[in-house]
Design a protein around this nucleic acid. Structure first.
Lengths: 150, 150
DNA sequence: CCCTAAATGAAAACGATTTTCATTTTCAAA
DNA sequence: TTTGAAAATGAAAATCGTTTTCATTTAGGG
């Protein structure tokens, strides 16, 4: 990793090593705060900005990319060989991943037809997961008005 | 429209009418700022918060929905019968729409297989559009380093 | 014509992201 | 191994889009 970064013109530091390691040990869709907490548990002297900058760096060198699920929080996904989309439950905020290999193929073709050269694909589905659906089916009313406007 | 809103328990006002009309006259993926500017040209007494609240209202009554293309700006898309995705050019920031009717069908099925009940689908492709690609091919170097990190 | 709930405008609050700045550290060249 | 320029860090402040607050005005049914 140190060598890899060197070729890109970046230096290795203890903080950076900790941050990188932590990030890759965590699951997908990691937020800055989550990574910061995790890193802090091993070294509470690391600053928030450093975590943030390194997360950006990880993206910059192509090892991860930003994901926007829809809540105002930017999350970071490791770049995997297998492209995947997200099923985001609006009730419990859980995220289910699913393979979108073929989908991406179709998308790339559609993009190409329009002269567009794709870099990355984001496929996000919002809805309700199995568990929450079961819960909703049993309890609660159907609709209450006043959900957002002041 | 006034009647439609009444059935939902909302009142019509001059500002609201102007905002709604402006929004539907504009193209897709409209940001708060863009709508605000447009509205202001007809009535410069309308407040930003009012534009924002009405945009939220338009979503609430199901006539539009939020879109996150990847830059930190929330945009609003009219809800159309035909579901569409976006090709977002990271160079010139332009957006090309494309039909994703079949894709959505596939997605809905995949979601269903996992017990997930989908509400909405977001298909966003980032890349470079035809024009920008042509430009890059001719001029400029390939890579300059220092593009984001302080 | 009233009254109440809803809507508005201005400004402030918020919260995540990004930058600034002074200091420390890395690492390659001498 | 010493040295110096470039890069990295930490803390705090600045940004920036979004959201809320609050005092006031307005819509529209009764």
């Amino acid at each position: 990793m140190k060598e890899f970064l060197k070729t890109k013109g970046f230096k290795m530091t203890p903080q950076r090593e900790l941050i990188f390691r932590s990030f890759f040990e965590m699951g997908e869709h990691v937020s800055v705060d989550e990574l910061y907490d995790r890193v802090r548990r091993e070294d509470n002297s690391v600053g928030y900005a450093t975590v943030w900058r390194n997360l950006k760096l990880i993206c910059r060198v192509g090892l991860a990319e930003e994901v926007n699920i829809g809540d105002g929080i930017t999350r970071y996904d490791r770049v995997t060989k297998v492209p995947h989309g997200h099923l985001f439950c609006t009730e419990c905020k859980s995220v289910i991943e699913f393979n979108v290999e073929q989908l991406v193929g179709v998308l790339a073709q559609k993009a190409g037809e329009r002269g567009f050269t794709p870099d990355s694909f984001k496929i996000e589905v919002q809805g309700v997961c199995e568990g929450c659906r079961a819960l909703k089916a049993s309890g609660s009313n159907g609709h209450s008005e006043e959900t957002g406007l002041p």
